[in-house]
Simulated scan of single mutants.
Amino acid sequence: MPGMTTLAAASPSAAPSADADGRLAAAVRTWVWTLVLLVVAMVAVGGATRLTGSGLSITEWKPVTGALPPLSHEAWLAEFEKYRQIDQYRLLNAGMSLAEFQFIYWWEWGHRQLGRLLGVVFFIPLIFFWLKGAVTTRLAGGLLFIGALGGLQATVGWIMVASGLEPGMTAVAPIKLTAHLTIASVILALLAWVATGLSTRERAPVSPALARGAKILVALVFLQIALGGLVAGSRAGFTFNTWPLMDGGFSPPLATLFAVDPLIENFVDNVALVQLNHRLVAYALLAFAIWHAVQAWRAGPATSAAKRAVALAGLTSAQAVLGIVTLLLVVPLWAGLAHQVLAMILLIMAVAHLRAARDARAG
Rank of each mutant, 00 (worst) to 15 (best):
M344C: 15
L217I: 04
M96C: 12
N93I: 00
I324F: 12
M344S: 15
A195Q: 08
A357M: 14
H278W: 11
E74G: 07
G119D: 09
T136P: 01
L337Q: 06
A350R: 02
T316S: 15
A48M: 15
M349I: 00
R361T: 11
V341C: 04
R50G: 02
G115W: 11
F258K: 04
L92P: 03
I264V: 14
V330E: 13
F288R: 08
Q85K: 14
T256L: 11
R29W: 11
A184F: 02
V39Y: 03
A154H: 07
G110R: 03
A350T: 08
S54F: 05
L98P: 10
F128E: 06
Y283T: 06
G95T: 02
V310R: 03
M169K: 15
T155M: 14
Q85P: 03
I86M: 05
A320I: 11
R203E: 09
I225K: 01
A204C: 07
A226Q: 08
P244A: 09
L286A: 14
A293V: 09
V221A: 05
W61C: 11
I127Y: 10
L188I: 01
P174V: 12
T52P: 03
A350M: 06
V120W: 10
A140W: 03
A211S: 14
L71P: 06
T6P: 02
A184W: 02
Q85W: 04
A293G: 12
W334Y: 08
T65H: 08
L327R: 00
L217M: 13
G141M: 08
A357V: 03
G142Q: 14
H278T: 08
L77K: 15
S163R: 13
A18Y: 10
I58V: 14
V260S: 08
L149D: 02
P69V: 02
A362T: 14
L114K: 09
V221N: 04
V206K: 02
V351Q: 09
I175D: 11
R355D: 08
P205N: 11
W291C: 10
L68C: 10
A192N: 10
T182L: 15
R29N: 13
A320V: 12
G168W: 12
G133Y: 11
V161Q: 11
A214G: 11
K176G: 01
A25N: 13
R138N: 12
P244H: 12
G66T: 05
P252M: 15
L92D: 09
L165G: 06
G55K: 05
G228R: 00
R235P: 04
D247K: 08
L51G: 07
